[in-house]
Design a protein around this nucleic acid. Structure first.
Lengths: 125, 125
DNA sequence: GCCGTAGTTCGTAAATTATGAACTATAGAA
DNA sequence: TTCTATAGTTCATAATTTACGAACTACGGC
């Protein structure tokens, strides 16, 4: 097994991030990961988009997220724990992730009459 | 010539926007277009990325931007005038475009000691 | 060692993207 | 009106990327 590739934060590019998050499955995975707060195994996302996602595909999605610098993956026993690299990215591209995640949220919630999402100061992904 | 497709703002998706702007050429075109303030013809961007971009490719890039809802293209005499749909998108996905353009700027300017970019209130793409 | 779980890698089919060549639309001569 | 040049689009196809099943690797019990 080749060692996993985690780009240094300075090598993370906007293109890479946008590309990674332009796929609905990866966006959902990432949003869920950020939302839950704690590290999660890949399997946790197999049943994400109505249809079961094949594990080889899922593996590629995680690789894309990882190589875009969005997440860090660490083997923990038999499974792989993934954690978002929010803080680092926020330092490099201030406001980018909150804006993207916020937009995805707007889209999911579909133009609701009045959103219950106040603009809390600080990290409000 | 088929009539150009401009999605209604409600059909614009985050995925579409991210995908469109995840290409460096398109991102550069869009940034330039937003920066300049005025409508511009496609040809204006032929010499964008060091290497001359073939016009068929350029045409596809504009189509992608257009169908993602990022720009509006109108024939004006022999050429095509393109204008960004910033205001509409800002209303649908508040903060998304400024964040992306800002991040692209950070990347271009490459970690400068102190940026000369104050956080002006209002539209500061 | 053997088994089960969790992921990765490989090979190939399917989908996207890039680009030259041919075409369309428009403006301004001749 | 026809000719010519400019600006873009469309088409066909080559190159690149993505999806996913099958085979493989890694780890933790038993």
């Amino acid at each position: 097994m080749k060692p996993l590739i985690h780009p240094s934060i300075d090598d993370v590019t906007v293109e890479g991030i946008l590309h990674a998050l332009s796929d609905p499955v990866r966006a959902a995975i990432y949003a869920e990961m950020v939302g839950s707060g704690c590290a999660q195994a890949c399997t946790a996302f197999a049943q994400m988009s109505e249809r079961e996602i094949p594990k080889s595909t899922l593996s590629q999605h995680f690789r894309t997220l990882r190589e875009a610098g969005l997440i860090r993956s660490e083997r923990q026993g038999v499974e792989m724990l993934n954690t978002p690299r929010c803080a680092e990215i926020e330092r490099r591209f201030p406001g980018l992730l909150p804006a993207i995640l916020g937009a995805h949220r707007v889209q999911r919630e579909g133009r609701k009459p009045a959103g219950r999402r106040k603009a809390t100061a600080g990290r409000s992904y």
